[in-house]
Design a protein around this nucleic acid. Structure first.
Length: 768
DNA sequence: AGATGAGCGGTTTTT
DNA sequence: CCGCTCATCT
């Protein structure tokens, strides 16, 4: 039923009309311009199914509200229901609501759920911090030192730029590693520290300040912003420009923030400015899930919020709707040792105690992969689980490789979360750089990337000449190229180059001129097609290897993404590309296991979760050892991983792990010691057996294969004590099905490890 | 200008 | 172990 509703009615109006109505509406008048607040059902419908704390959160306010939401406590539900409540019960116009999240995926999900509650909502400002800021900055560009068609530099571009500057300043890139300098710059930006205010304690700081200064200047030269700039410029604009601040502060009657514990200083200040007029700011967070300190996030913003708004309502959500009690108990035990936290009691009312947590020790990373894949295959084949119900999580991306290999070896499909994996590829970056250059010809990082890709005989010497010429004439490099193309040999610039170089540059300028011209009336995809054709990119990639073919496939994949932007302009397409997060690329329609980092897992849930690589040095990561605050964050990371699991949790560690090419023995993660033994299946540390020769035949989760496979149940369990007629007593370490037989690995007291075919070996079980 | 190979350094996590 | 930078050669 989409009857007469205020939101539907409003959706037909554009913003100017709404603003004029707003003025009218405030006039004393007998005329009712707005109908009374709509009632889609009534408030009871929105409250239904919510527990008392959730209900309190839903209707809290006016004024600041802080919701401390444990994992799985229904915070997304609270957020979405609250938006629905504001719109449908309090009559707040969607246009006057701002909701911010950290990923596009979270934003999309929120939008879908709000629409599910109250129908289509137009005008609501809902997005990530970064995309919201980009919107504001494009709109307010007249107050700012860049144009509204600015491009967003990704982390690669950012480091490239720093590297350029280091060269320019003749810095030794061993002592001044571009990555580390960029980190410092980024850290400063997150704290809203401008180059001139950069604190100088050492000589190194002085250098960094110089680079920072130059970095900002070059970004502006390129009409480009980096991720941090999006927040920084917006926060500073709101800080400095009272009019702009008032415009937005008055507009946003209601502000809602997800994952508040992961805000940094810039984001915090930004929010405070936006909320400065109405002060209706509703933030949801969990300090125990704060895992982005290295990116400037500061969970103390939660405390800061309480200080800045002493009258704020604080609501605690503890009841968990996701996990079994065993999983919650383990999670609590892991997080409890962290200092400076308030105890939260996670409990479930409907999920029950659940299975114990399975802890497994494998010989090395390879076996770890095999163990996981085998376990998944077995569950699919025997327990009727769907492949998509499984997730494998790890601390570092590098760990995914061995796990992937195990899947590939068994010819089983999986999906890997990680946008960087795709958008960081050379061929993708090339094509995107071409598009970016056409969108914003000032973008020198992109120009540099594409001007000689494919090879056009434009080398370092020629580029230096071009750069010098640009500096001398005060023109952009692109302008010189275009001028060469336009006047051919007659250009005023021609003499600045050798004849051969001049010809190459002129030819490239002509290409660029063509694209700039064509871009006016082409969709992003059409423009991409034109460029690919002009530069013969497919031929360039095709080097006769499989890799070349793969690369072209990736380009076609990007083309498919571009095709979705038929109705929108190039700028929007490029912005999306720059701001995709790893989570955003998760394809939920594919029914296969998910591989992802613990960071990427935040906010997600899976029936069965494997956490791999639980060793000291990996989780907690080595680089966190010396800093207590970092160790606490590693613990939170583990906590986040554990609390993703709904039904079953597997914790896996390897006795040996490859680092830098050679294998080293490891210690199990110290965090494992904090999980009470009674929550763990078996005796704790159980060695995984040798993997079966081929799990593929038995455990394939192709529907046909899994239903037709002859399935036998293992009769033995790890931890059992058994007696063999001739080898004596031993303990079962592992058991698996291979070729229709149950193979049991047994450690015999007298003779050591043996593999035994259960059906042939007359084993006697001595205990359960 | 561009292709090839030795040497090196590096790994956390990502909008 | 792998990917990247730099030097040397064609």
């Amino acid at each position: 039923m989409q009857g007469y509703s205020r939101s539907n009615w409003l959706s037909n109006l554009d913003t100017e009309e709404i603003q004029s109505l707003q003025i009218n509406a405030s006039l004393p008048s007998s005329l009712t311009i707005f109908p009374p607040p709509i009632t889609i059902g009534d408030v009871m419908d929105l409250l239904a199914g919510l527990n008392p704390q959730q209900q309190q959160a839903l209707t809290a306010g006016p004024g600041p509200v802080l919701v401390l939401a444990g994992p799985g406590s229904g915070k997304t539900r609270v957020l979405t229901h609250r938006i629905a409540y504001l719109v449908s019960q309090l009559g707040v116009r969607p246009y006057n609501i701002l909701a911010v999240t950290f990923t596009n995926k979270a934003a999309r999900e929120m939008e879908a759920r709000v629409e599910g509650l109250i129908g289509e909502v137009r005008g609501l400002m809902l997005g990530t911090f970064h995309s919201t800021c980009a919107r504001i900055l494009r709109r307010e560009a007249q107050h700012l030192p860049f144009e509204s068609n600015f491009v967003i530099f990704d982390s690669d571009d950012q480091v490239t730029l720093v590297r350029q500057i280091c060269k320019e300043l003749n810095l030794d890139d061993k002592t001044y590693r571009p990555h580390s300098i960029h980190n410092r710059i980024s850290g400063a930006k997150n704290e809203l520290i401008l180059p001139e205010d950069f604190p100088i304690l050492t000589y190194r700081d002085e250098i960094i300040q110089r680079v920072y200064q130059r970095y900002q200047a070059l970004l502006l030269n390129s009409n480009a912003l980096d991720f941090d700039d999006l927040l920084l410029y917006t926060a500073n604009l709101l800080d400095a420009n009272i009019e702009v601040r008032q415009t937005y502060a008055r507009r946003f009657e209601q502000i809602l923030v997800d994952e508040f514990q992961d805000t940094n200083m810039a984001q915090y200040r930004l929010l405070m400015h936006l909320a400065s007029f109405h002060k209706n700011i509703f933030v949801v967070g969990d300090v125990d899930q704060s895992i982005y300190r290295w990116r400037g996030a500061d969970y103390r913003n939660v405390l800061r919020f309480e200080n800045d708004y002493p009258d704020s309502v604080v609501i605690l959500l503890e009841q968990n709707y996701r996990s079994t009690q065993n999983i919650l108990d383990a999670a609590m035990a892991v997080i409890e040792p962290n200092p400076n936290r308030t105890h939260k009691n996670l409990f479930t009312e409907q999920r029950g105690t659940g299975n114990k947590i399975v802890l497994t020790e494998c010989f090395d990373g390879r076996e770890e992969g095999k163990f996981i894949v085998e376990k998944i295959a077995l569950s699919v084949a025997q327990e009727g689980r769907e492949p998509g119900e499984f997730a494998v999580m790890y601390r570092t991306n590098a760990q995914s490789r061995l796990i992937e290999e195990a899947f590939i070896m068994n010819n089983l499909p999986y999906k890997l979360v990680g946008a960087q994996r795709f958008y960081g590829r050379r061929e993708i970056k090339d094509v995107v750089a071409y598009l970016r250059l056409v969108h914003n010809p000032l973008d020198e990082v992109s120009l540099l990337r594409v001007i000689n890709t494919p090879r056009r005989k434009i080398g370092g010497k020629t580029l230096a000449d071009l750069h010098r010429r640009a500096t001398q004439t005060g023109q952009a490099q692109t302008d010189i190229l275009l001028d060469l193309a336009q006047h051919d040999a007659e250009s005023a610039h021609t003499h600045a180059f050798t004849p051969a170089a001049g010809r190459s540059l002129t030819a490239f300028g002509a290409l660029l001129a063509g694209w700039l011209d064509a871009a006016q009336d082409l969709s992003p995809m059409e423009l991409m097609d034109l460029i690919l054709e002009d530069i013969q990119y497919q031929d360039y990639l095709d080097d006769g290897t499989d890799e070349g073919v793969d690369r072209w496939e990736n380009v076609l994949e990007l083309r498919r993404v571009a095709a979705e932007y038929e109705q929108r302009d190039l700028g929007e397409f490029l912005e999306q590309l720059a701001l995709v997060s790893d989570q955003d690329t998760i394809d939920e329609t594919e029914n296969v296991p998910t591989l992802l980092t613990l960071h990427a897992a935040k906010g997600l849930e899976f029936p069965v979760v494997f956490i791999a690589g639980l060793e000291d040095g990996t989780l907690p990561h080595q680089r966190s050892f010396d800093e207590p605050e970092s160790m606490a964050e590693e613990r939170r990371l583990f906590y986040v991983g554990i609390t993703r699991a709904k039904d079953q949790l597997y914790l896996v560690h390897a006795e040996n792990r490859m680092t830098y090419g050679y294998s080293e023995p490891t210690e199990p993660s110290r965090f494992l010691d904090d999980i009470p033994a009674e929550l763990i299946d078996g005796l704790g540390h159980v060695r995984a057996g040798r993997p079966s020769r081929s799990v593929r035949q038995q455990y394939s989760w192709d529907a046909a294969a899994s239903s037709s496979a002859a399935i036998i149940q293992p009769q033995y369990k790890a931890g059992m004590n058994v007696r063999h007629p001739s080898w004596g007593e031993g303990m079962v370490l592992n058991t698996h099905i291979d070729g229709g037989d149950e193979i049991v690995d047994i450690f015999f007291q007298d003779i050591g490890l043996k593999k035994v075919v259960a059906a042939l070996a007359h084993l006697e079980i001595m205990d359960g």
